[in-house]
Design a protein around this nucleic acid. Structure first.
Length: 215
DNA sequence: ACATTAAGTGATT
DNA sequence: AATCACTTAATGT
């Protein structure tokens, strides 16, 4: 994508958050990328040279425990950035999370050197980073609550609803197995709970497809 | 038609 | 809620 189009695009999406000069700078130094569904943007243990800003689509952030268990922490969508990258970006540490494209997505990559530079230079950037931290923190608290207090059936339903909202489609194209991995249970349990939800007329099941009727 | 993969189910812990 | 041990159904080759 050429810089003019990118500039227009950024302006459309971000003119309320970023000052025009900052948008110009972003256009100048960043790289536009189209990401296909299921692409791993960043894996555990990797370090990164750029921070992503999401223009379109959804990214799933997950963590893998020592025993190999994986758990979905939160989703990123348009206007979000991966705050974990800030933390480790500044100190060029290794990532503790995995970022994987949940849907096809458009992102722009900003070189990390610009991070600190803009932090002092632009108020809108400072606010953006702060706000991002804040939002991510709240979301993390929410997922902790979910894990600690909700029973599996509630967790599953919440997962479905969250996903519907993030993908902006009531039809989820996924398998029971994948869901089981995300919420850390077995496929059999997911299948049974989904069947229950279907009987309650909250969802409709098909192979590789779940239609959420109430959300 | 055959193999592979997703989903459904009873029984057991 | 998890696991086992199948079974059944859908899909790809």
């Amino acid at each position: 994508m050429d810089k003019t189009t990118l500039r227009t695009k950024l302006h459309n999406y971000y003119h309320v958050v970023f000052e025009p000069e900052l948008i110009d700078e972003i256009v100048k130094v960043s790289q536009y990328k189209m990401i296909k569904k299921d692409t791993i943007l960043l894996d555990i243990g990797e370090s990164f040279k750029a921070i992503p800003l999401i223009l379109h689509g959804a990214i799933k952030i997950s963590h893998e425990a020592a025993n190999g268990d994986e758990i979905a922490i939160y989703f990123l969508e348009m206007g979000d950035t991966c705050t974990a990258t800030f933390g480790s970006g500044l100190q060029s540490k290794k990532s503790k999370v995995r970022a994987i494209a949940e849907t096809d997505a458009e992102i722009i990559l900003i070189p990390i050197e610009k991070l600190e530079e803009w932090l002092v230079k632009y108020k809108s950037w400072r606010d953006f980073v702060m706000d991002s931290y804040h939002t991510r923190f709240d979301e993390m608290i929410e997922t902790i609550d979910t894990l600690a207090f909700l029973k599996m059936d509630k967790r599953l339903y919440k997962y479905l609803v969250d996903k519907v909202q993030i993908t902006r489609s009531p039809v989820l194209e996924t398998t029971h197995k994948e869901i089981a991995l995300d919420i850390n249970t077995s496929r059999v349990v997911v299948s049974r709970l989904l069947k229950q939800l279907e009987n309650e007329k909250k969802i409709k099941l098909n192979r590789n497809k779940i239609e959420v009727l109430e959300y």
